[in-house]
Design a protein around this nucleic acid. Structure first.
Lengths: 161, 161
DNA sequence: CACAATTCAATTGGGCACAACTAAATGGCC
DNA sequence: GGCCATTTAGTTGTGCCCAATTGAATTGTG
């Protein structure tokens, strides 16, 4: 069936790799799809929703801090925040004490949106088909994975034979 | 501390939700980063690598079949395949038996790339910090999640109180 | 004060993802 | 044969993600 002389072991590695990376990729996009449907009422995309979650939890923040919470840089956040400002959910105001910094502030409308967003998490949880413990377990695994991958991306290990 | 009259339970939901959706989001991007580093030598992006994996495993395929394996539509695949063609790894040839269909074929160069890609999976596995069983377990969970989310996206349940 | 290094946001460019639409070809039906 | 629904790629528009660069403001140092 496989005409290549490659050892079976390498075939298995390739296949296993396919499984894990593809599974994560697919799960991420599936999550995105569900959020797209649920967040449409609120007029938010999924990454915009993440920004609003951070602002609801921590209050007004400079772009820099927002990026640290979300692990996103200004190249991603700047246009995203402009769209949120265009939608009327946030204002961007350059700090008076440090002119380099831009404060992202919730508008009345943005703060009020929280009331309507409160039901989102439960709907998402239901959609996952997981119970609380299952979600917690999965979250822990994913965070472990992210930590390990971040470390690997830094050390790189390009010369690995 | 919280001026809103919202019950504490809802606060917890919001926080829990933040954890799971954000964890997946972050893990997906972290994976992407590691692949970006490792695949740079090969001249592939991560989604392009997924396409090549499918072609290496299944041989030449029409765009439609490729999309089914990867769960991607032509809007994503068409430009991606053009870039792969530009890089010399695939050819796109319109089928002679059904003019609507476009066959994606590996070039010599594309097939040869497999030899160099063989070491990628092991490096990725090392980067995850997980052992084989851990990866298998996580893969299973993620596939369950994707299946549940896909089902939820279809049924939607928008009127949920 | 002057100068260099650093910090922060914004911009640009390349690529991925998806929705909506177009265009061409096929196949079934009368 | 002529008509129409379906199938298949492609195109367009919007948004996200990241790398690299730019430019303004700040901080540190002499």
């Amino acid at each position: 069936m496989t005409p290549t002389p490659t050892p079976a072991a390498q075939e298995n590695w390739l296949r296993l790799d396919n499984q894990i990376c593809f599974s994560l990729h697919a799960a991420s996009r599936a999550f995105n799809s569900v959020y797209r449907v649920i967040l449409k009422d609120l007029g938010l995309t999924y990454p915009q929703y993440l920004v609003m979650l951070v602002l609801w939890e921590h209050g007004d923040l400079p772009v820099k801090k927002l990026g640290e919470h979300l692990r996103l840089d200004s190249g991603t956040l700047s246009p995203l925040l402009k769209r949120l400002e265009g939608a009327g959910f946030v204002r961007r105001e350059r700090s008076t004490v440090d002119e380099r910094s831009v404060e992202v502030r919730l508008t009345e409308e943005g703060a009020a949106l929280r009331e309507r967003a409160v039901e989102v998490p439960r709907r998402i949880t239901v959609a996952t088909g997981f119970d609380i413990d299952g979600i917690r377990e999965l979250r822990t695994r994913l965070d472990e994975l992210t930590t390990a991958l971040d470390a690997a991306a830094l050390s790189d290990t390009p010369g690995c034979s």
